[in-house]
Design a binder for these strands. Sequence first.
RNA 1: GCCGGGAUGGCGGAAUAGGUAGACGCAACGGACUUAAAAUCCGUUGGCCUCAGGGCCGUGCGGGUUCGAGUCCCGCUCCCGGUACCA
Length: 865
Amino acid sequence: MAGYPFEAIERKWQAYWKAHKTFRTPADVDMSRPKYYVLDMFPYPSGTGLHVGHPEGYTATDIVARYKRMKGFNVLHPIGWDAFGLPAEQYALRTGTHPRITTEANIARFRTQLQSLGFSYDWDREVNTTDCAYYRWTQWIFLKLFERGLAYEAEVPVWWCEALGTTLANEEVIDGRSDIGGHHCERRTLRQWVLKITSYAERLLAGLEEADWPASTKEMQRNWIGRSEGAEIDFPLPDSSASIRVFTTRPDTIFGATYMVLAPEHPLVNTLTTAAQHAAVSAYLAQALRKSDLERTELQKEKSGVFTGGYATNPATGSRIPVWVADYVLGTYGTGAIMAVPGQDERDWQFAKVFGLPIVRTVAPPEGFEGEAYTGDGPAINSDFLDGLRVEEAKARILDWVESSGVGRRKVNYKLRDWLFSRQRYWGEPIPVVFSNGEARPVPPEDLPVTLPALEAFKPSGSLEGPLALAEDWLATTDPDTGAPARRETNTMPQWAGSCWYFLRYIDPHNTEALVDPALERYWMPVDLYVGGAEHAVLHLLYARFWHMVLYDAGVVASPEPFAKLVHQGMILGELEYTTYKEVENGQLVTAEEVQGRVHRPTGSAVEAVRIREELVQKDGAHFVLKDNPAIRLNVRAHKMSKSRGNVVNPDEIVAQYGADAFRLYEMFMGPLEQVKPWSTRGVAGTSRFLNRTWRLLSGERGRVGDTEPSPEQWHMLHQTIHRVTQDIDALRMNTAIAALMEFINAAYKWDMVPRQVAEPFVLILSPFAPHIAEALWEGLGHEGTLAREAWPAVNQAYLTEDTVVIPVQVNGKVRATIRVPADMPKPDVLARARQEENVLRFLHGTKVRKEIYVVGRIVNFVAR
RNA sequence: GCCGGGAUGGCGGAAUAGGUAGACGCAACGGACUUAAAAUCCGUUGGCCUCAGGGCCGUGCGGGUUCGAGUCCCGCUCCCGGUACCA
């Protein structure tokens, strides 16, 4: 394959950019010029290197960065490494290699790979979360949180994973198994550092309003924060001064509260349990505690619970209602207790049905309602002074009553819980706290960083403490105030910590006096465009916003929200696969739709999946079938890339075969950035072909560029292309921008000569997409040095408009002809011209024209009968 | 269940202040060049019909609005992602 010499070109220009620091953003930029901060979610440098998914977002941001530079912006486009985390530590456990070693090696590999793709990062601003000069400031932020009462210790029931030797956050445990590795986890109570993110719930919610973020991501954050308005109401216990406090969003239904339920972990369970019920209750509690979340979910259909024997008083009705214990009430939400209103709550209805508890409707369901609990709107019934009121009005009335009679108060509740911030691991930022006489004392900021000790062994300590408990020399220290002996905190921070603020450090990465210089921060923030995976829609993006707001309150940063515009790149799936099944016993192929699980339903025999090559497949109606046996229908799908499926595409191989420019182009050409799309290596051959054609046409030695005056058609083609590409980049529609570039080359191929005045702007607008070949072409056209700071070509409107336009002529909405007319021809003339078309006349013959429509420059339509 | 996104040729996808559906690319087919192949270049390519002018049908399904609907409205189906006893 004799293509253009991409290998030499890419090597040369990557070396040039590196040697000349072409993409360095100096610390002292001219702040009178506009800025643009384009940020990628920085990668975790895993041992397996880049996959084709990483460069998708990176290419998009690189195109924007290069484009904005040419538009005259000061551009900040950095990269770094989110390098703390469990995989390196587990690798260390297995092999004895220190995580620092593995991490450095992985980073080196990632860096080489990213550079081979020609991304225009400012490599002088690289940050690494595991660098003590970096995590010094992560620790510094922790001190700010501590100072402001936002970091506190608590005995928290946490997920303990025996296999990993560490606790995990709720979100790291899925169905009772660790997200990483899938190990079994159980609940333990431990002393933990917790960050008070809940006190920012309201502001985190409000900040979403303005953000130019995907609607789905904003919605996910809203759901995660889970704000709900309601009331806390106390239900007194008849035989004591205590009461059960519940949270409810439906105080209007209180007259239908016929029983109460406590979560198994509720402190009043013991108090309420009568002697007669004691055995039953403790059996239930023991069983509930053992249940994993998985089991709880699986058993969800059937409600379980037990009567405590105790009663409480419904403050609205004054009646005695039984108190039950059931695990469908969560200890961690609200007050861990509910008033059960089966008439208006499906869960309560189910429970009441199982245990024969009374059901009273307090909202009249609509006529013909056949369901059980009715949760919709309607007039109140059986509700004393609320009767007849609709839900909203009834709520307002009862809340006034609740507050004036002192049985409760309005209350806003959140699903969001405080952020469990401790990890019992080695490979994370040490929490900068020491313990003296059992009291937590912050390490003074001037003593930061608290560096990780160089441990030799990485075994879990055997206790609930992490490996740092084994670093004896490191552990022993002194109280910063009193000088008394003290012991260091052995917990480290979770991986989220370093990524909560890295975008600030890029602004001023070498500052030893401050996290970031305030003037620089004010200039560069917020991030103008942030691109990364939707998997971070909630956690990373919420935690980062939280820290940023705290830093804002502390006067460290100048704006409360860090990311002005956010875009998620869609996942890249493996190549499209055609599959069906064959019977294991005789190898007979069977049609895919008759297979369920691993069994061929008609015969009951065991089958296994087989992949069918594309050339053996054809479409038959709505299905894909085998060419030589159309009775066999196939499944057609692209699957998520995974090692086990064997469909992982390695970017290095693609770059070696087609070059970085063709690879970048294909990544962008596949389809809209946000969309999920299947990979196709043959598609890369297509973008590679385009670059070859471009080279043949425009390269200095054998190209067809000449110093002729462009024709009107050539000017038009050029400016139309500039216009489309510019608009498309602004809207991140890289796929259609590339299509426009291809159309230009296709048109230019028909010209005898490409005028220099047309060729040069084309090379410039090609350059953000395919920077290496563009630099080489630019040089070939006689320029010296890089084109990276050349001005982005401007569109000349005069060349955009055409003198004549092609207008389709419809009769009754169907196109019967097209005519070419001057763009400014008046309506009557256009209509007259349209009527001259033979085919139009044919369809108008014998009819009467009722209406004549001409939309200027677009369409003619005769309505005739 | 709930929330969000989607469905257009053999494939990836274009086209939304409603105005020629299928840009661009892949694949396929035909031709040129070549001893041959690769590469390249030119062309064809939604389906069906055709007296070769053109005609009919066609954007997941069923209705509606309109001179005109892939695009707007109502009612569904299926697929993907997220989430799940949050009171």
